[in-house]
C-alpha cells in the first residue's frame, strides 16, 4: 500500500540552509532512507545523503529524524502516524557539509588520541590465550558500528562546542573501557588518561548515548560508569590506592 507523506528535509551548507517541505510516496515496509532516496530521485536531484549498507551495520546514514538521532535505514515509516510530518536534518553536533551530510572527522581525530592495545612485551603472535568470560565485556563494545549517534546526542559537545578539545565522547569511552577491561592490555595509566586527557569526568551520565545506540550497547552502565569507578580506584580512593601500592594488584594498572 502506498501513501502520501509530508516531509521536511534540511537543505543547505555550512553557511546557510533551511527546512524544505516535500510531499512524497511511501510504500509499505519502507524505511526513512528509502523515502529520502525517492525524494532524491524525483524531486531533489542534488540532495546529499550519506548511506551505504541499508542494513544498520555501516553507520553511514546517521541523521536526526523528528529531532532524534537515528539511522535512516533502521527507522520504519510505519512508526510514524499517518498525518505526521517527518522532519529530517543532519546531525546537529557536527559541522554540516551539504544537506544531510556532516563532517564527522572530529571522531577520527579523537580515535587517534586513544592509546592502542598494548600486549605483554614477551607475548609472541599466536600465543595469546584467553577464556571467553575474560573478553565478553570487551566484545559488547566491539559491536559499535561507528554511526556516531552517541557522539551527536552527547550534550557535552552537542551543546558546548568548546568542549570538543577536551572530551573524547561516549564512543571512545567504550573503546577505552574495552582496552582497560582486556586481560592482556598492559598499558599503565589508561584510567588516569581517561580522566585527565579524554574528559571522562565531563560526562554526567545522563544516558542519552545509551538511548540512541542502534546496537543497544549499554554504553553508560557497562563502559562509562565502570570506567568512572576504576578512575575512583586510582585517583579518589586513598584506601584503594594504598592497597594497590602494597599488594600490586593486577587490576589497578
Amino acid at each position: 500500500m502506498t501513501r502520501k507523506i509530508k516531509m521536511r528535509i534540511w537543505r543547505g551548507n555550512s553557511e546557510t540552509g533551511s527546512l524544505q517541505d516535500v510531499s512524497v510516496d511511501a510504500n509499505e515496509g519502507e524505511v526513512v532512507l528509502d523515502v529520502i532516496h525517492r525524494v532524491q530521485a524525483t524531486q531533489m536531484g542534488d540532495l546529499a545523503v550519506r548511506w551505504n549498507c541499508k542494513a544498520g551495520k555501516c553507520g553511514s546514514c546517521s541523521v536526526e529524524i523528528n529531532g532524534k538521532p537515528r539511522l535512516a535505514c533502521m527507522t520504519q515509516m510505519a512508526s510514524f502516524a499517518e498525518d505526521e510530518t517527518i522532519t529530517v536534518t543532519p546531525l546537529r553536533a557536527f559541522p554540516v557539509i551539504k544537506d544531510l551530510v556532516t563532517d564527522v572527522s572530529f571522531n577520527y581525530k579523537k580515535a587517534m588520541e586513544i592509546p592502542s592495545f598494548e600486549p605483554p612485551a614477551d607475548l609472541k603472535p599466536g600465543e595469546a590465550r584467553m577464556q571467553q568470560i575474560d573478553v565478553e565485556r570487551s566484545q559488547e563494545f566491539r559491536k559499535c558500528i561507528e554511526c556516531f549517534l552517541c557522539q551527536d546526542t552527547c550534550h557535552v559537545i552537542r551543546d558546548h562546542e568548546e568542549n570538543k578539545k577536551s572530551f573524547a565522547g561516549p564512543r571512545f569511552f567504550i573503546r577505552i573501557a574495552e582496552l582497560d577491561m582486556h586481560p592482556l592490555d598492559m598499558l599503565r595509566n589508561r584510567k588516569q588518561k581517561a580522566q585527565e586527557e579524554h574528559g571522562l569526568g565531563m560526562c554526567n551520565i545522563t544516558k542519552c548515548c545509551t538511548e540512541v545506540c542502534p546496537e543497544h550497547i549499554r554504553i553508560t552502565d557497562n563502559a562509562i560508569i565502570p570506567m568512572k569507578e576504576r578512575v575512583v580506584d586510582v585517583k579518589y580512593d586513598p584506601v584503594r590506592w594504598l592497597g594497590s601500592k602494597i599488594r600490586r594488584r593486577e587490576e589497578v594498572l
Binding site: 540552509g17 529531532g67 554540516v96 551543546d159
Partner: peptide, 18 residues
C-alpha cells in the same frame, strides 16, 4: 553556542523533537 555554533546546520529551534 552548541547547536547554534558556526558551521553546524542552521536551525533556529533548540530541538525538533515532537
Amino acid at each position: 553556542t552548541g547547536v547554534f555554533s558556526a558551521g553546524r546546520a542552521l536551525i533556529t529551534d533548540r530541538t525538533l523533537r515532537t
